[in-house]
């Protein structure tokens, strides 16, 4: 099976869509092959993955506020 080499801009679309839905086998293969060879896209992929975690981390940040800042001055009994 011939896998067409995709250029960076197209690959970032797959990187993005991968976080929202499942890709076809061919798309996954194209993505992996490209990322294996292209350092910039590898970093971009990591950055997208990091952005994908921001919701969860933002929530942690909110929930940490009072324990981290010690705003509650009444110690636990």
């Amino acid at each position: 099976m011939m896998i067409r080499m995709m250029i960076c801009k197209e690959i970032t679309k797959l990187m993005s869509r991968r976080l929202d839905t499942s890709l076809t086998l061919q798309e996954r293969l194209a993505l992996h092959m490209h990322i294996a060879m292209c350092g910039a896209c590898r970093e971009c992929n990591k950055q997208f993955e990091l952005l994908h975690l921001t919701g969860h981390e933002y929530q942690n940040l909110i929930l940490d506020t009072d324990t981290a800042s010690g705003s509650s001055d009444t110690p636990e009994a």
Binding site: L61, I62, L63, T65, D66, S69, S71, S72, T74
Partner: peptide
């Protein structure tokens, strides 16, 4: 108090 502390982030 805890609510007041998290409010700005919310």
């Amino acid at each position: 108090q805890r609510l007041a502390a998290v409010r700005p982030r919310l």
